[in-house]
């Protein structure tokens, strides 16, 4: 498959957030400020790529040969959690400033359904290893794009007179729905 098309497809057409509705919790939780959203975006890209690479190998050489497919979800989550823990320890030891700026969001990636979603999606689409890793990178970038757009919007939302009942998460969800409507633009662009 053409890598460029795949990149465009993963970012715009099948945006992991706005077209496949995965990873909504960090989308709402980490989009209050642009700096935080960029940090979160990069963290997700990194973890997604690593997790996809590891889970791909595990799936291919352990789960499939021993017929353990039903353990996929739990094993993948375990791998992602272990990876996040590893990344956290590494950053804490080697790059303390980055570790500090990511704060609580780093461990929270463990429960990010976008990361698990990417790892499972590449299995379902039966990509080869290089394509799978590339796809996870592109999907992570798509996640970051949606997050940064949302952060820009929410910085303005903070000064809007939103009805009391809709303040905070509620209006964020409405906004996510409307953005997803706008992203219908790319429907049917690349199969």
């Amino acid at each position: 498959m053409d890598y460029f098309l795949m990149f465009i497809s993963a970012i715009f057409v099948n945006n992991i957030l706005l077209a496949q509705y995965l990873g909504n919790c960090p989308y709402l939780g980490c989009s209050k400020e642009k700096g935080v959203s960029i940090g979160m975006g990069f963290a997700v890209v990194f973890v997604a790529v690593m997790a996809t690479a590891f889970t791909f190998i595990i799936q291919k050489y352990i789960l499939v040969p021993y017929d353990l497919g039903y353990l996929q979800t739990i094993v993948f989550i375990l791998v992602i959690a272990g990876l996040v823990q590893f990344v956290e320890m590494f950053l804490k030891r080697m790059v303390p400033p980055l570790y500090k700026s990511l704060g609580i969001f780093l461990p929270l990636i463990t429960t990010n359904c976008a990361v698990l979603g990417i790892a499972i999606l590449v299995q379902r689409k039966e990509y080869d290893f290089a394509t799978a890793v590339f796809y996870s990178f592109a999907a992570g970038m798509g996640f970051m794009l949606a997050l940064v757009l949302m952060a820009g919007i929410r910085e303005r939302l903070a000064i809007a007179r939103v009805p009391k009942a809709f303040e905070g998460t509620a209006i964020g969800l409405v906004m996510a729905g409307l953005m997803s409507l706008a992203f219908f633009a790319f429907k049917g662009m690349i199969a």
Binding site: E155, R156, M179, A182, A185, K187, G188
Partner: peptide
């Protein structure tokens, strides 16, 4: 794209980008 006409969606997408 999948649609014959794109003006509506193009403007909506730019609306998304507007704050940035």
């Amino acid at each position: 794209g999948g649609y014959p006409e794109g003006v509506c969606y193009a403007i909506l997408l730019m609306n998304c980008l507007n704050p940035v």
